[in-house]
Simulated assay, not measured.
Amino acid sequence: MNSDLNGNKRKKGIGFKYAFMGLRRVWTSEKNFRIHIFISGLVVFFGILLNLSMSEWLWTGVCIGLVLILETLNSAIEAIVDYLFPHYHDVAAKAKDISAAAVLLSALFAVFVGLFIFVPKIINLF
């Protein structure tokens, strides 16, 4: 058995329950996560319409996953920093800004890959 920070005993095992609770929390508390999910849905919809190849789906899925994972980690970092620093602190601001930058970089990468995949397909429609 493991114990938490308070010394309470917990069963070992896969924490799917807690992972799904985390997904629910990020969904209900983070507007940007919901925006990324909506955009991901649009990308999947247009990917189906444009008949993406297997490798194009792979790249699309990697990009969607990367953005959602980093948005989730950013939310966790922000929650921890807000707890540790309830008032403004330069270190807290730096940590939050850098974690937000990671999300931005992943989103820009996803846009680049999306343009590379989707623009030629859209041009071929005309």
Rank of each mutant, 00 (worst) to 15 (best):
K31V: 10
K9N: 11
K17N: 14
L105F: 14
W59E: 03
I39K: 04
V81S: 15
A100S: 13
I117E: 00
K31S: 06
L108T: 14
T60S: 12
A76F: 10
D97H: 12
K11S: 13
S40H: 10
P86A: 08
A101W: 10
M54H: 05
D82Y: 10
H36L: 10
K12L: 15
H89Y: 12
T72Q: 04
L105T: 12
Y83N: 15
K121W: 00
F33V: 07
K31R: 09
E78G: 05
S99P: 02
L125T: 08
E30W: 07
I77P: 04
R25C: 11
I48D: 05
A101K: 14
I117N: 00
L66A: 09
A76L: 12
K94M: 14
Y83E: 13
A107W: 01
L73T: 11
D82P: 02
F85D: 05
F46A: 08
P120Y: 01
S99W: 04
L5K: 08
Y18R: 07
F33I: 06
R25E: 11
N51T: 03
R25N: 10
R34E: 08
E71V: 07
G13Y: 04
W59A: 04
D90H: 12
I77V: 11
F20Y: 13
R34Q: 12
A93I: 13
V62P: 03
I77Y: 04
V67L: 02
T28I: 15
A79W: 03
V111W: 10
L52V: 03
A107E: 02
P120W: 01
I98A: 08
V67Y: 01
M54Q: 09
G61A: 08
I98L: 10
I35W: 11
G114D: 01
P120S: 04
A76I: 09
L70T: 10
F85S: 11
A110D: 03
A107F: 07
W59Y: 06
V43W: 01
N6Q: 09
S106K: 05
N8V: 13
N8K: 10
E56I: 01
K96H: 06
F20A: 07
E78Q: 05
